[in-house]
Structure formats: structure tokens, C-alpha cells
Simulated scan of single mutants.
Amino acid sequence: MKPDEVTRLLHAWRGGDVAARDALAPLVYRELQRLAHSAMRGERAGHTLQTTALVHEAFLKLADAGVDWVDRAHFFGIAARQMRQVLVNHAEAHRAAKRGGGAPHAPLDEALDVVGTPSAEISELDDVLRRLAAFDARKAQILELHYFGGLTYDEMAAVMQLSAATVDTELRFAKAWLRQQLGTAR
């Protein structure tokens, strides 16, 4: 995938060119699949939402978002947020359907690749991210881009308009905070 071509198509799509959106879809599909696979890593066995469905739902939300696309990294940052929201909605619907039934929780094996972090439901992770965003929105967004978006440090830096070194520092702090929150939430 050529980043410049993706950015050019995003700008054309922003200008109302539906053909550009249609040309963009196959270019970003594989990367969206990778993001979806990463976002679903650790979900419970038998999860009813498959990666392909997650990609399609997220892309439909992206198509209707009316976002003023800046570039490829911005697109995938927003895609990560959309996937997170789809997973949260799905988890909440699943929990509501099973409420009171003693159904098993939907664990995430490693929240944010933090070794030793206790498993957490996607909705619990969402709650923790919301708490973090309440006092430090930038760290919460970096966590979201890292975990749900699977973006590289350079891509996160571009989306956040920060240096990669700052992203690294913020991410290390956010992971430690997350580890502490998930450990005390039990």
C-alpha cells in the first residue's frame, strides 16, 4: 500500500469523489484486516463477531463519518477508534443478552501487550480508557491507537502530531497506569 496514494484518495473522497472511496477500499482492506485481528486478539473462544465483520462494520462507520481526512495515519487512527466502538457495542449487547445467566466473561489475553496484565472484558478496558481520558486524553488516545489500531510509533506520532519519543514516553506511562487499574479493578 502506497501511503501517498491512500492520502490522495482520502482527499478526493473528502471532496465528494465516491469513486475515490471505492478505489480506496481494496487498498486499505488488508491493513484493516490486520487491525481487526489485533483488536480481537484474546477475545473469548466462539466470539460471534469475526474479523471480517469487524472490518466491514468499521468501514461502514468510516464511510458515514464525514471526517476531514488528513492522511493515511489519520484514517487508520479513526479506524482503530471505530473498531473499538464496534467491539464495545458487541460486548455490551452480548452481556445484556446473557445478563444474570452466569455467562463467562470475554477475556482479552494481553491488554495492550502488557505481560502479566489480568484479562479484562472489552467493556472493562473501554471503561478504563474512559477514566484515563478524563484526566489525560492524549495518553488514552495513544493507548487506543496502539492497542486497537496497531499503529507503529511513527504512525501514532503522525496522528497525534508528536515526536515518536514522546509517544514512547506517553505509552509507557499509559501502560503502567492501565496495568495498575486492571489489577485493582478485580
Rank of each mutant, 00 (worst) to 15 (best):
L143C: 09
R131H: 11
V114I: 15
R138T: 14
D136A: 02
L129F: 15
I122R: 11
L125I: 15
V128S: 00
I142D: 02
S123H: 13
L151G: 05
E121P: 03
G116R: 11
K139Y: 00
V128C: 02
L132N: 01
A120M: 11
L143N: 02
E124M: 09
G150Y: 03
L151I: 06
H105M: 10
R131N: 09
L125V: 15
E124S: 07
A103Q: 00
R130Q: 12
G149R: 04
T152C: 04
V128L: 12
P118N: 05
A111H: 05
T152Y: 08
H105T: 15
Y153G: 15
G149H: 04
L108H: 05
R138S: 12
S119K: 13
A140R: 03
F148R: 00
L143Y: 02
A134T: 09
A120C: 11
F148I: 00
H146A: 10
A103E: 06
T117Q: 10
D126C: 02
K139W: 02
D113C: 09
A120Q: 09
I122Y: 15
G116V: 10
S119D: 11
S119Y: 00
A103S: 01
E110P: 01
T152N: 01
Y147V: 06
E144G: 07
L112P: 03
Y147C: 01
A140M: 03
K139A: 13
G149Q: 02
G150F: 07
Y147A: 09
L143K: 04
T117P: 05
F135Q: 14
L112R: 07
V115L: 08
G150M: 12
Y147D: 11
L108A: 00
Y147M: 09
A134K: 11
V115H: 07
D126Y: 08
S119P: 08
